[in-house]
Design a protein around this nucleic acid. Structure first.
Length: 493
RNA sequence: GGCGUCUUGGCCGAGUGGCUAGGCAAAGGUCUGCAAAACCUUGUACAGCGGUUCGAAUCCGCUAGACGCCUCCA
């Protein structure tokens, strides 16, 4: 019996606009695809937020005992910048600027991407396929779409015929757009396009001579369209119809809309049962933007080397901050918000450390099993991590009350509380107990313990000048002494 | 301009047609040689104006504002 058999998850499905009961295609197994980064520069912090939310979702599924195949791609072939593009994609443009090979750019930023995610305690996906590794699959997919009459070839490029597709299908059902509206509201293009209609999108693009990344195909030496790679890779590893497809809200249109169209045109079935979209990350109430300079990258956030925040924030604090709001809400990154999260996070960690030191009583004044189910209910309700955290704080309060002899738990309940706290805090939310790791350094704690003892003696002799000196000098070094009932402890910050 | 989302206490941030999270900050208290830290306690908010309802912050309409996509930036 797996834990998921006792839980009923509801997921907000972007396709229907409703929370729906989650039922995997195959019981006990989940196929989940999330659009990964384009590795032509440092990964965008907003992108990291999306991946962080899906990391938490992945962790929760695993916690429930599901076998999850989580596929997150690497877009290393670049994608077209716009319709008027003469065949140069983002990756080659960057490479030329830096005078290096495109695959060198890809390699550098892929490594960088992984470093950041490791630092932030992400679980690696089950498969991390690259676009360049699936050119053949993409070519095959294009052939099928052409054979089915939904794409046409012009000058060595292949375009998806949106109008033809829309005759018997519904283009726009995910983003709630109507083709007629798109037609009326599409800006006049510069007329250089080979496309029959502005709404059509490229499946294959002929490479211009200066384009370095290119592959042979039946139509031309060229490269695949951006929307195609996700369709090719998701269906290859998860099947023509799979459970969950996620990504950032900005990908809903046109990217995900085009994925649906490609799949339906090629296979005749809708590819995804549950579409999930993480909302955007803002910086001080404004959209992050390179052009206006209102942007901070993950390295700068973690190092504190930026002009937006008063200090560096630890990976767990960043994760905690993210989990304090819903993945479907716009999240505004601010110094005040991060500071508040840091304090809250530290308080939670203190309570979890205290939990290891308290002892069981003969009765329970707190219903642990009921509380435990509330934690699950929170996550079952479209992964409502803010509610989960509220429950964790409720438990933290109980722990502190037990420490003050104002509450008690039987040993069974205490054990259950420990297990549940740890499971949700560390396994599901992916937090790391930094404070504990810091103070476990033996040399440091040995030295500080000695100072604590000397200060204790000074205090006993009422030599407060010395005792305060020890306290203040340590504080200046970032070591805080905490006088409690049962002696003095310390923490580093 | 089109389509869509949102507007909650000092700040952040969940949620629900009546039982009104949580965090941060604040105030009071406990502890302490004094502090700090920690802990305890307190705090009735839902943009504005109408409407539906026994009852709305929660449903409907209008207004104002913010944001997103449509157009390179995730």
């Amino acid at each position: 019996m797996q834990p998921y058999q006792n839980q009923s998850i509801h997921i907000y499905n972007s396709l229907t606009g409703k929370k729906e009961v989650f039922k995997p295609i195959e019981e006990g197994y989940i196929g989940m695809y999330v659009c990964g980064p384009t590795v032509y520069s440092n990964v965008h912090l907003g992108n990291v937020r999306t991946f962080m939310s899906f990391d938490m979702i992945y962790r929760y599924f695993k916690h429930l005992g599901y076998k999850v195949r989580y596929v997150r791609n690497i877009t290393d072939a670049g994608h077209l910048e716009n319709d008027a593009d003469v065949g140069e994609d983002k990756i080659t443009k960057k490479a030329r600027l830096e005078q290096i090979e495109p695959m060198e750019v890809v390699q550098r930023y892929t490594v960088d991407f992984h470093n950041i995610l490791n630092t932030l305690n992400f679980l690696p996906p089950s498969i991390e396929p690259t676009a360049t590794g699936h050119i053949i699959e993409q070519i095959e997919l294009i052939k099928t779409i052409i054979d089915n009459g939904f794409a046409y070839v012009v000058n060595g490029s292949v375009y998806f015929d949106v109008h033809k597709f829309n005759e018997a299908n519904e283009y726009g059902k995910l983003s709630k757009r109507k083709l007629e509206d798109l037609i009326h509201n599409t800006r006049a293009l510069d007329g250089q396009s080979d496309k029959k209609n502005p709404q059509d999108f490229a499946l294959w693009k002929r490479a211009e001579p200066q384009h370095i990344m290119r592959w042979p195909s039946p139509w031309s030496d060229g490269f695949p369209g951006w929307h195609l790679e996700c369709t090719a890779m998701s269906t290859k590893y998860l099947g023509d119809n799979f459970d969950i497809h996620g990504g950032g809200m900005d990908l809903k249109f046109p990217h995900h809309e085009c994925e649906i169209a490609q799949s339906e045109a090629a296979k005749g079935i809708s590819p995804v049962n549950y579409w999930m979209h993480a909302n955007m990350l803002q910086l001080n109430g404004q959209r992050m933007s390179k052009t206006t300079g209102n942007t901070v990258n993950p390295h700068e956030l973690l190092s504190g080397n930026n002009t937006f925040f008063s200090k560096a924030y630890s990976p767990s604090v960043i994760r905690f901050f993210n989990a304090m709001s819903s993945y479907r809400s716009i999240l505004d990154l601010t110094d005040d918000g991060l500071l508040a999260s840091e304090k809250g996070f530290n308080r939670l960690m203190e309570a979890i450390n205290t939990l290891e030191t308290i002892t069981a009583g003969t009765t329970s004044t707190f219903n642990v099993s009921e509380w435990k189910q509330k934690c699950y209910d929170a996550m079952n309700d479209d992964f409502n991590s803010p509610i989960l955290i509220a429950h964790l704080f409720e438990a933290a309060k109980v722990v502190n009350q037990i420490k003050d002899d104002k509450a008690s738990l039987t040993s069974e309940d205490l054990e259950l509380l420990k297990q549940t706290m740890n499971a949700f805090t560390f396994d599901v939310l992916g937090l790391v107990n930094v404070a504990q790791a810091d103070t476990s350094s033996e040399k440091l704690s040995g030295a500080v313990e000695l100072l604590i003892q000397l200060r204790q003696e000074a205090r006993a002799n009422k030599d407060f000048a010395l005792s305060d000196k020890i306290r203040d000098e340590l504080a200046a070094k970032g070591i805080q002494l905490k006088d409690g009932k049962d002696g003095t402890t310390f923490s580093t910050n």
